[in-house]
Amino acid sequence: MNATVVSATGGPEVLEYTEVPEPSPAPGEVVVDLAAAGVNFIDVYHRKGRYPLTVPFVLGSEGAGTVSAVGADVTEFAVGDKVAWANVLGSYAEKVVVPATQLLPVPDGVDLHTAAAAPLQGMTAHYLTHSVHKVEPGQDVLVHAAAGGMGLLLVQVCKMLGARVIGTVSTEEKEKLARQAGADEVLRYEGFAEAVLELTGAGVHVVYDGVGATTFAGSLQALRTRGMMALYGAASGPVPPVDPMALHDAGSLFLTRPTLRHYTATREELLWRAGDVFGWIASGKLSIVVSERYPLAEARRAHEDLEARRTTGKLLLVP
């Protein structure tokens, strides 16, 4: 079978589409024939070595497909089942080995490409809005990169929960997408903190910031007293060290750097979040925007487009 392998960390040029041995499941594991793999910024961090992994490794952490083999002790899944997953390394491959404890059943009414695009960002949107900061009706929320795959989901979920959503984007085209997703106000990045304060008077209750270095200081400025800064990513680069007194001076702010695996720590929590996300999709409450589908062999081009911010919505790799 073929897979995208990283033998040395670096830029998109290190991605090598090559033949690798076909896997077989160990006890507790399942082999899935890939329908599509999601492309995420965590894949970029793995490729660059920002989140170090032992090389060589097959890239990718999210996907969906059909079960083709099950290992001993697997009772929840059978050959032919439609499944999805997130946080499973090795997903840029024609066949993916997934621990059964990490597999998500895909319900009727959700196609496999949508299922591949939903778990990582969908469950991230779920824990950010239900657990990191419980969004409530009437709250003001700031979502950075509101037209990206993650941002579009956050906008929709926050609106579903009754918040007023302010989004930031870089272009007029992206503004249209953010507004279509439900954003009440859409700003450009330059001067966004001042604009947020003018719109809200007191600042927002929570900032969902996956951009990082270029937005962090303004995000703190845009918060109201005792507001929550949820820094869930660093697309523009890592944030420099923070003096805790800066949180004191800005209004006794809260700062967290969460990650999905800590909010899906048990099977029950994983299935709760995924069940809600797939249920919203099946009922039409949540729309997954897949903006580009690349051949699995063209992961390099997908990474180049993602890092250059040439994309909106979700990117998929398809065998």
Rank of each mutant, 00 (worst) to 15 (best):
V239L: 08
E268T: 06
L255H: 07
T312H: 07
L253V: 05
R261C: 14
V289Y: 11
P295A: 03
E268I: 08
T259Y: 13
W272E: 14
L260F: 04
G251V: 00
D276Y: 14
R224K: 14
E307K: 02
D276Q: 15
A235E: 06
L247E: 02
R257L: 12
E307N: 03
L260K: 01
A274H: 02
W272Y: 15
G275T: 02
L286T: 01
A308G: 05
E307P: 07
P238Y: 15
E292K: 11
P241Y: 05
G227C: 07
R301F: 11
L270A: 11
V289K: 10
E268P: 02
K314G: 05
A302S: 07
R261H: 14
P295N: 03
G313W: 03
P295W: 01
K314N: 08
P238D: 11
F254D: 12
E268C: 13
L231G: 09
S291P: 14
V290F: 10
S291C: 08
D243F: 15
P241D: 14
S252Q: 12
A230K: 04
L253C: 00
A250W: 10
M229A: 09
S287F: 15
E307H: 06
D276T: 10
S287G: 11
D305M: 13
S252W: 10
L271F: 08
S252T: 12
G237A: 04
A308F: 06
D243K: 09
R293P: 12
S252L: 13
Y232I: 11
A230Q: 03
D249M: 12
R310V: 14
A308H: 05
R310G: 14
T256H: 10
E292G: 13
A230W: 00
L231S: 07
T259Q: 14
R293E: 12
G233P: 04
E307F: 04
L253M: 03
R224W: 06
L270Y: 06
P258E: 10
G227Q: 01
Y232E: 13
L296D: 01
P258Q: 12
R257S: 11
Y232P: 11
A234F: 10
R267K: 13
D249L: 15
L271N: 08
A302F: 02
R257A: 10
R300I: 02
R224M: 15
P244I: 01
A234M: 12
V242A: 13
L253P: 00
Y232C: 09
R309M: 10
L270Q: 11
L271I: 08
R267A: 15
